[in-house]
Simulated scan of single mutants.
Amino acid sequence: MKYIAGVDIGGTNTKIGIVSSEGRIVAKESIKTLSMEGVESTLKRIWASIKGLLEKNEINYEDLLGVGMGIPGPVREQEIVGFFANFPWEKNLNIAKLFRNISGKETKLENDVNVIALGEARHGAGKGAKTSITIALGTGIGGGIYIDGKILSGFNGAGGEVGHMKLVKDGKLCGCGQKGCFEAYASATGIEREAISRLKVNKTNKLYQKLNGEIDKVEAKDVFDCAKEGDAFSLDIVDYEAEYLAMGIGNVLNLINPEKIILAGGVSLAGDILLDRVKEKLPKYAMSVALENGFSIELGILGNDSGIYGASALIG
């Protein structure tokens, strides 16, 4: 049996797994990234964790085919990170080469959301589809485009950044510094921003009661929880979210025409109360042909393991 290490490097934690050639995670653990200690320190601790997992599971070093990594930032040629979204590391750093020097193993990289998309495409909700797009709905919106067995990274590694499509001319300010982005409306941050705005003028609702009037503490989950309890105020915000989500997804469908759209990330945990509304509104924004012949929009099924699965799929 041969194995691959899948590494999902995050701003705070790094998830590490050993995946068998049969596509099964046989061991995994999470360690602190501690990027402030420097790139070499972080990579050495990741390799120490991988070696520890191999030893605990009596896997020979020779049976490890390589290491795949997902990392927050644009990646070129599966080696070089243009810049790091949350790390104080230098630009245009060849992480793959650094890690090969440490481990002696073949190493390939991709953007973190791209590896989530690859994981869902190969092992999760997109399995069996030739084309799928995974949209990660969290604090922001990330995307990964999977076409004919490959992730579309783009010329400078910025392919799949669907969160920064413009939905509204000179609209709400986005974290990227531009205005009117998909992310500014349909992310968890966008939902919370809209909820606060509405709560300032309407305090007779279940959401306001749940927050004990501390409206600045609202989270997207609070909105969805109250909506599921039948709160009309919160349901209205969910409808707002679904409208912009359908608009953004519709634009993606018209451009790529995938077999599947997969929704991942924290906002997707809202489930059917959001998904049903998105499906209902989608025909307003997507060409009818893009919704035919078995097209489906689904929720991701791999959860926190998606990055491990996707990173391992970079090898071989």
Rank of each mutant, 00 (worst) to 15 (best):
V278C: 13
G213M: 06
G250K: 00
S288L: 10
M247K: 15
L235S: 06
V238M: 14
V278H: 08
Y244S: 07
V252G: 03
D272R: 07
I249C: 07
I261T: 03
N254C: 13
L253M: 14
G266V: 10
A220F: 07
E259L: 01
P283F: 13
F295L: 06
L235T: 00
A246R: 03
D276L: 11
K284F: 14
L269W: 00
F224L: 04
L235P: 01
S268H: 03
A290T: 15
P258G: 04
A242Q: 08
S268Q: 01
G230Y: 01
P258K: 00
M247D: 05
K228Q: 09
K221I: 12
D236H: 05
E229M: 13
A264P: 01
A286N: 09
I262E: 11
G271T: 08
A264M: 01
G265T: 06
G213H: 04
D272H: 06
G213N: 05
G230Q: 02
I273G: 07
E259Y: 00
V252L: 15
V218A: 15
G248V: 09
D216I: 02
E229P: 03
I261K: 01
D222F: 05
M287F: 14
K221R: 15
Y240V: 10
K281R: 15
A227N: 08
P283Q: 10
E259K: 00
L263G: 12
M287Y: 11
A227Y: 09
L291V: 11
I262W: 10
G248D: 09
L245F: 10
K221D: 11
I215K: 00
E219K: 14
I261C: 08
E292N: 07
G294W: 02
V223C: 15
G248K: 03
N257A: 12
K217M: 13
E259M: 01
V218C: 15
G294E: 03
F233N: 02
E219L: 13
K228A: 10
V223D: 14
I215D: 02
I237P: 05
A286Q: 07
M247G: 07
Y244G: 09
K228N: 07
L275Y: 04
G230L: 02
E280V: 05
F233I: 04
D272Q: 12
M287L: 14
L275R: 00
I237V: 14
K284Y: 14
K228H: 01
M247T: 12
F233Q: 04
G248Y: 10
K284T: 07
N293L: 00
K284N: 15
I273M: 10
E241Q: 15
K281W: 10
A220E: 04
L245V: 07
L255N: 02
I249G: 05
I256E: 00
M287H: 10
A220W: 04
N257Q: 05
F224I: 15
